[in-house]
């Protein structure tokens, strides 16, 4: 295992070192100590390595992640795992705004709560939040799955496209064009798999599914000159 003390090594050097790891690296396990809320830690990784951040992070930790597994042993600032393509990001604490924003793939697990705009504009990422999520989550979410084991705040799924939203607790309000939908066996299968991978013991049968009513998909184009 490789250990880097972020009080001794600059952010640039930390990220450059992690970026140098190729798919064939033998140094697959890394620990970053003393992050102290620094921004852009372990962003842009593209190798099957495991990085553990021992503390809380600032903005955009694990942004645009590919392949890597990033464990945050604390809470994460805004935009954690933004635009993630693949891999796994696991946060032991809470996540601030925009967690998993625009993510295209991979799995983001938040063991605490997530703030507002969780999963905003998500494009294929899977997000599992063990706690609650804030307002305007999954705004304009395009695809992927957002699983919330607690409650959801106001305007969930506003202007939603094809993402699937699963909420176990209450939903304060649904956003424009977001409706409750039938939970079919294929959805329970997706949900069961995600809960298991995220280490949650919540029962899939306790969740409700929400999705797009698809009423905002088209303007009346005959009238649009």
């Amino acid at each position: 295992m490789q250990t880097i003390d972020m009080q001794e090594v600059s952010l640039r050097d930390v990220n450059a070192t992690l970026h140098e790891q190729a798919e064939t690296t033998n140094q697959t396990t890394w620990t970053l100590e003393n992050p102290k809320g620094a921004h852009a830690i372990a962003c842009g990784l593209d190798a099957p390595i495991e990085v553990t951040v021992k503390g809380s992070t600032g903005y955009y930790c694990a942004g645009m992640n590919q392949q890597a597994t990033v464990n945050i042993k604390g809470s994460a600032g805004p935009g954690v795992a933004e635009n993630m393509m693949s891999g796994t990001v696991i946060i032991d604490g809470d996540a601030s705004q925009y967690a998993g924003a625009t993510g295209h793939g991979g799995l983001l697990v938040i063991k605490g709560n997530a703030s507002s705009r969780c999963g905003i504009s998500m494009k294929g990422i899977d997000i599992v939040v063990h706690g609650n999520i804030g307002h305007m989550s999954a705004f304009m979410a395009q695809s992927g799955n957002l699983v919330v084991c607690g409650d959801a705040g106001e305007a969930l799924g506003d202007s939603l496209y094809e993402a699937r939203l699963f909420v176990r607790g209450s939903v304060k309000s649904l956003g424009a064009d977001c409706i409750e939908k039938e939970m079919r066996p294929e959805h329970l299968e997706i949900l069961t798999d995600l809960l298991e991978r995220a280490g949650s013991d919540a029962k899939p049968s306790e969740f409700k599914r929400y999705g797009s009513a698809r009423k905002l998909y088209n303007f009346n184009i005959d009238n649009a000159y």
């Binding site: 450059a16 842009g44 088209n218």
Partner: peptide, 30 residues
Amino acid sequence: IDQRSACRHPDWTGPDDLEIKILELREITA
């Protein structure tokens, strides 16, 4: 479908945030 692009960025809201977003993009592109 009639595609609508958002008018605001999804993960930053002002110039202070943007400064950090630029840091992230610079880190990713070295």
